[in-house]
Structure formats: structure tokens, C-alpha cells
């Protein structure tokens, strides 16, 4: 029976997101030209929340987009049956903007690489930043996050499960298997 450790509950996640929202604005140098793009699936919900938090603080709506990276994965030629492709929609243009990619968990870095490739097909942002709820280590590519909610040190046997109210009915981050830090 694998062990399950609750790392963040509702309120912990809410405060993490508040702090992350502030850091995003800081690292982006303000909200001018700021666009948040969430990665399917849960990155989309997190990006929406961050956009909401930032928008409330700054008093203006922050453009929000969704990106599904399935078609840009680097393992499509080797895996068998195809994964489902979710919705991609970006606000009119990302040309010259500051794009903040939002995802729930950063692990090998391949998802982000795919996201960078896909964004390149849409245009050329001025800057791209990465914001993740959990950085669990285990990078296989030279990719780093600019804004992190929680850092973990995990092994290949561990699983990090992120749940969001909008999809799963509750907010939580859990580590399954292995010892917590």
C-alpha cells in the first residue's frame, strides 16, 4: 500500500496561489502585456485562478489562454494508442507579450518544452516565464520555473497528485509513495 502524504490542503493551496500571483507580477515587471497561458489540464484552472487574483489586485482583467500540448509531445512516435487532445485557445496575439506558462507539476520538463514549441507556432512573445504549483525535481531537460508554489524532492516511484475544485471537487496536493521531505 503506497503512502499518501497531504502536502497542501485548500487553505494552504489558496495562500500559495496568492503568493505566486504576487511573484508573477513582480517577475514580469508589472501587468503590461501580461498573458497567462494554462497547460491542459489542471494548469488551465490554476491559470484562471491566478488571472483572477492578479486581476482583482491590479484592477484590470488579465488575458488568459489554454494550451494543449498533446500534438507536440516528443513521444508520439513511440507510444501506442493516441492520447486525447484537449482545447487550445490563445487570446488574439502573443506577439511581443510577456507570456507566463502555468502548470500544476513540473517534473521532467518535456511538457514545457512542448509548450515552448507550440507557442513558437503562434508567434514570438517578448518574454516567456514559467509558473508551477509544484516543482518535484527529476528534470530531463534544462528547464526551470520562475515562480514555484512548493518544491519537492521525489523519486521515479513517487507520484504527485494535484486536485482542483473545478475538476475534482477539492483543492489538494498529495505525494503518493516514498517519504516526504
Amino acid at each position: 500500500m503506497p503512502s499518501v502524504t497531504r502536502l497542501l490542503d485548500d487553505s494552504a493551496m489558496a495562500s500559495a496561489l496568492s503568493r505566486m500571483a504576487r511573484e508573477v507580477v513582480e517577475k514580469s515587471g508589472g501587468t503590461r502585456g501580461l498573458v497567462l497561458v494554462g497547460i491542459q489540464r489542471r494548469g488551465v484552472e490554476l491559470a484562471a485562478r491566478l488571472a483572477g487574483l492578479i486581476g482583482k489586485t491590479e484592477g484590470k482583467p488579465i488575458p488568459l489562454g489554454k494550451l494543449d500540448i498533446t500534438l507536440y509531445r516528443d513521444d508520439l512516435s513511440t507510444i501506442g494508442p493516441r492520447p486525447r487532445v484537449g482545447e487550445t485557445s490563445l487570446p488574439d496575439t502573443i506577439e511581443g507579450r510577456t507570456v507566463v506558462i502555468v502548470d500544476d507539476v513540473l517534473y521532467t520538463g518535456r511538457t514545457i518544452r512542448a509548450a515552448l514549441d507550440e507557442l513558437a507556432d503562434f508567434g514570438r512573445p517578448r518574454r516567456i516565464l514559467l509558473c508551477v504549483l509544484v516543482d518535484r525535481g527529476g528534470r530531463e531537460l534544462p528547464i526551470q520555473a520562475d515562480v514555484v508554489g512548493q518544491t519537492l524532492d521525489t523519486t521515479g516511484d513517487d507520484r504527485v497528485d494535484v486536485a482542483v475544485k473545478e475538476l475534482d471537487g477539492r483543492d489538494s496536493v498529495e505525494l503518493v509513495g516514498g517519504a516526504p521531505l
Partner: peptide, 24 residues
């Protein structure tokens, strides 16, 4: 039919290309 939906979006982009079948 469900899989065709995201592909409709690809055809609306400026760069109408995704690498999914690259090399095939």
C-alpha cells in the same frame, strides 16, 4: 468526431502545422 475538434483549431492558426506525425 471529438478528436476532430482540436484539429479544427489548428486549421485556424497562422501556422497551420503541428508536429504530431512528423517523420511519418
Amino acid at each position: 468526431l471529438d478528436t476532430a475538434e482540436p484539429f479544427k483549431e489548428v486549421s485556424e492558426r497562422a501556422i497551420k502545422k503541428v508536429p504530431a506525425l512528423r517523420g511519418k
